[in-house]
């Protein structure tokens, strides 16, 4: 790690102010991606602004048909929350499958979403459930939030405060992990609400996306069978030593079928 300045503001306003005055500042949430990147000297901020003292960011609230997760809610807390599990079991399951136990004990939903790693799990849940990202400035629908590879709609200095998930009728997530990193090689999240099915794919492409083909098929009939014959184009998919684009394309339909099969009745 290079040397940097560290601060731990108590309020969002103070955090924004610190960011404004920093030469090249960065917010620190759980640090499970940022700290390794800094250790490898791939990230070299001049100022690290630790958000952990901002109290309201750690709340979990399930009410009015919404699951609201504060930006600093840890993956293990989502996985272990009875309230989340009874409202959206697929979300609790997804959180229970992120990284490993130690990472889940530190990593946060806000950090994951803001980083938008193409192989992260949460973006699939946000897109698949039609969640909205609340910041200190505004609300951003998930569909508009994930812009590209490690790129989001967040403006300079903007802070995620909460992610709000509308409770679906049914939802499920199926993940094919990268055997080395345990990130998603392909993960498919399916959410069904008011008769509309949303299908989100992570890991396969430079940014999580919704699959129009699969949504169309499932909106006709929610069954694994209805995905027979659907092929996802490999042209825009990731291609690396772990999985070719063609294989990823294949896995998208396989994981989609598994998610459909796993949907609660």
């Amino acid at each position: 790690m290079y040397s940097f300045n560290y601060s731990k503001p108590d309020t969002i306003e103070a955090a924004r102010e610190m960011m404004r005055s920093a030469e090249d500042g960065i917010y620190l949430a759980g640090g499970q991606t940022l700290i390794p990147a800094m250790k490898q000297r791939l990230s070299a901020p001049t100022d690290v602004i630790d958000l952990s003292s901002i109290g309201e960011l750690t709340d979990i609230d399930v009410s009015d048909g919404r699951v609201r997760l504060g930006a600093l809610v840890k993956h293990a807390d989502v996985a272990g929350s009875d309230a989340v599990r009874s409202a959206i079991p697929a979300l609790a399951d997804l959180a229970a499958g992120i990284g490993d136990a130690q990472v889940r004990n530190r990593g946060t939903i806000g950090g994951s979403v803001a980083n938008n790693d193409p192989a992260a799990d949460y973006p699939a849940a946000l897109l698949g459930l039609g969640a909205s990202v609340h910041t200190d400035q505004r609300q951003i629908p998930a569909d508009d939030f994930f812009v590209g590879l490690f790129e989001t709609a967040l403006e300079e200095g903007e802070i995620i405060t909460q992610v709000a998930f509308p409770v679906p009728d049914r939802a499920a997530y199926a993940k094919f992990p990268n055997p080395a990193s345990r990130y998603a090689t392909v993960g498919v999240f399916i959410g069904v609400r008011d008769g509309v099915t949303r299908v989100a794919v992570t890991g396969a492409a430079p940014c999580a996306f919704r699959s129009a083909e699969i949504e169309a098929a499932l909106n006709a009939e929610i069954s694994a069978r209805s995905l027979d014959g659907i092929t996802i184009g490999a042209d825009d998919l990731n291609n690396d030593i772990h999985a070719s684009a063609e294989y990823r394309a294949h896995l998208v339909t396989v994981m989609a079928k598994r998610a459909v099969t796993a949907l609660p009745k």
Partner: peptide, 22 residues
């Protein structure tokens, strides 16, 4: 790269990778 877990300790009762906590 925060993978091997050899550095695991308990922080407020939870297992964490102490190489990935400042």
């Amino acid at each position: 790269t925060s993978q091997c877990g050899a550095c695991t300790v308990h922080l407020d009762g939870r297992a964490v990778k102490s190489c990935t906590v400042l």
